[in-house]
Design a binder for these strands. Sequence first.
RNA 1: AGACACCGAAUACC
DNA 2: GGTATTCGGTGTCT
Lengths: 157, 157
Amino acid sequence: MHSVLAYTDGGCRGNPGLGAWGYVLINVATGSALARACSEANTTNNRMELAAVLNALCALSKPDTEILIRSDSKYTIDSCSTWLAGWKKRGWKRATGPLKNVDILQQLDVELAKHGVKFEWVKGHAGDRGNEYVDGLLNECMDLGATGSIERRLQWD
Amino acid sequence: MHSVLAYTDGGCRGNPGLGAWGYVLINVATGSALARACSEANTTNNRMELAAVLNALCALSKPDTEILIRSDSKYTIDSCSTWLAGWKKRGWKRATGPLKNVDILQQLDVELAKHGVKFEWVKGHAGDRGNEYVDGLLNECMDLGATGSIERRLQWD
RNA sequence: AGACACCGAAUACC
DNA sequence: GGTATTCGGTGTCT
């Protein structure tokens, strides 16, 4: 059983506007970590928060990985761990109005099924080391413009 | 029709902390001016900026005075000239969360109705003579402690 | 009505 | 470099 800790975050300058998603994946046993961020034009904060989780999960090399994801987005956490099942059952519809970000939500549904994923909410901008690190990466990435990309290997300890 | 020019300013050591509000009222026709400042314990910068305008208006002896107020606080200017009407209409509520400094805002609503008040924003600490004068008065007043008070009559020309 | 996030602006301070 | 006082808005869901 592999054990991974992840921090994910998304941000947007303008909302909608220039955005970016980012994550750090940490191998708990060894402390070796992979950090990634990507920017995108004309997107939204919530879409980026969702994309951060999706991309983190896609980066897992082995199936059935046990992973704990820390995010500051209640929308993202509730989407993945509470609401997604209901939306799927009802044909990807919500109570009133159209369900947003369905494309990402459906990919998330697939990826979530491949692993043992747990979520934990962390308050944003409150000194949490992992959250602040990814937030910083995000902003570096947005500074690069609409097609920025950052990949870093680091030791987390 | 009386024509008055006023500079108002508020400040705070610590925010929240020891604060003070101040103003200069200038009779444009004669150049005779009245300057006042008062300090207060445990208050906020924005509250002091608001209080500066309120106290300036209360100092006007005659009703229906035409007065131009110069402040460096966009918060204060927008509150008085843009947002106040909407807050009143909606029962002193803002878009999300509680509306702060409602007590002063409501008194402001009363005083603003009594006169012909216009606002002009001036950049703080940028060499504007009136703004700098009041800022100096404020700081003298805070030097006096939590219950300081200054009143001066002067010739503005 | 609630929650979280994202942004924008100005000021005040340390 | 940081924090606090304040406001406006959008993105999203229940």
